[in-house]
Simulated assay, not measured.
Amino acid sequence: MSEITLTEDCMRLISQFESLTGAGARDCVIDDRHNRVIFIINPGEMGLAIGRKGASIKKASEALDKRVEVVEYSDDLVQFIRNCFLPAEVLSIEFEGEDEERVAQVEVREEDRGLAIGKEGKNITKAKQLLRRQFDIADVELIQE
Rank of each mutant, 00 (worst) to 15 (best):
M1Y: 02
T5V: 15
E8M: 00
E8Q: 03
I14D: 04
Q16D: 12
F17G: 09
A23G: 05
G24L: 10
A25H: 06
A25M: 00
I30E: 05
D31H: 05
H34Y: 15
I38V: 12
F39H: 09
N42E: 15
P43I: 04
L48Q: 10
G51A: 00
R52A: 02
A63K: 07
A63H: 07
V70N: 07
V70R: 12
Y73A: 06
S74P: 06
S74A: 00
D76V: 10
V78W: 01
V78K: 15
V78C: 07
V78I: 15
F80R: 04
F80A: 11
F80G: 06
I81T: 10
F85A: 08
F85Y: 14
A88N: 06
V90T: 13
S92T: 01
E96S: 13
E101L: 12
R102S: 07
A104G: 12
V106W: 09
V108C: 04
E110Q: 03
D112R: 05
G114H: 05
L115T: 12
A116R: 04
I117P: 10
G118Q: 07
K122G: 04
I124M: 05
I124R: 06
I124V: 15
T125G: 06
A127H: 02
Q129S: 12
F135R: 11
L142A: 02
I143T: 13
Q144K: 14
E145L: 01
